[in-house]
């Protein structure tokens, strides 16, 4: 989780990632930030994030992102 928060803060600082639950729906992260995020998460966690995973439910909070990362790691 710490690594994920670090990546997020590097891409878009000044957001309370621990508590924010509407990163996408609340327009805190725009589509360009998502593109950066996808590339960085893939490198950091050795996963592949397909286009279908880029939905608000997966990116609205750090927790939901972590869930997606763990699921993708599990699926291999």
């Amino acid at each position: 989780m710490e690594e994920l928060i670090e990546i997020l803060e590097d891409i878009q600082p000044d957001i309370d990632y621990e508590n924010c639950e509407d990163l996408i729906d609340g327009h805190h992260l725009d589509s360009l930030s998502i593109l950066s995020l996808v590339a960085e998460l893939e490198d950091a966690f050795d996963i592949t994030i397909p286009a279908i995973e880029i939905i608000p439910a997966n990116f609205n909070s750090a927790k939901s992102m972590m869930k997606m990362i763990e699921r993708l790691q599990e699926e291999g």
Binding site: I11, L35, S36, V38, A39, E40, E42, D43, A51
Partner: peptide, 19 residues
């Protein structure tokens, strides 16, 4: 944007020209 080459482009360009 999530094609392999595009993701590599995003990753390297971000380091050079910013977020």
């Amino acid at each position: 944007t999530t094609a392999d080459k595009m993701k590599k482009l995003t990753s390297s360009a971000r380091k050079k020209i910013g977020n």
